[in-house]
C-alpha cells in the first residue's frame, strides 16, 4: 500500500532484511516492523480473536493495538513500536494468543 521515497543518503547502505511469516522483507534501518509490513502486498498484521477478521496497522503511534505481532524474543508486541533489526523474525498473530514462554 506504501512505497519508499528515495533517501538522500542512498538506499542500499541503509537497509536490513527481516522475516515476516518466513518471507524476507527489506526494511530501512530506523523504521518499524509495521512500516515495513505496509509495503507488502499482504499488509495485514493479525486476525482478531473474536471473528478471525484480518487487521492491519491503523494508528502507527501505539494507541490502537491493531498491529500486534509475534516478534522473536519479545512475544506479542505492537509492530509500530518495534524497530527492525537484521534477521528479525516476525509472525502474524492468528486469533487469540496462546500462552507460552516468550522471553
Amino acid at each position: 500500500m506504501f512505497r519508499l521515497l528515495e533517501d538522500d543518503r542512498g538506499r542500499m547502505e541503509s537497509t536490513v532484511t527481516i522475516e515476516i511469516d518466513g518471507y524476507p522483507v527489506i526494511a530501512r534501518i530506523g523504521e518499524t516492523v509495521a512500516s515495513a509490513l505496509l509495503r507488502e502486498g499482504a499488509s495485514w498484521s493479525r486476525t482478531t480473536p473474536v471473528s478471525g477478521a484480518r487487521r492491519a496497522p491503523y494508528c502507527m503511534m501505539g494507541v490502537c493495538f491493531e498491529c500486534l505481532m509475534l516478534v522473536e524474543g519479545e512475544g506479542l508486541v505492537r509492530a509500530c513500536q518495534t524497530p527492525v533489526r537484521d534477521g528479525l523474525k516476525v509472525e502474524r498473530q492468528m486469533g487469540p494468543r496462546k500462552v507460552g514462554p516468550s522471553c
Partner: peptide, 11 residues
Amino acid sequence: ILLKNPGSVPS
C-alpha cells in the same frame, strides 16, 4: 508518521 519515518508514501 510514515512520511517522517521511513519516508514512505501511498503507492
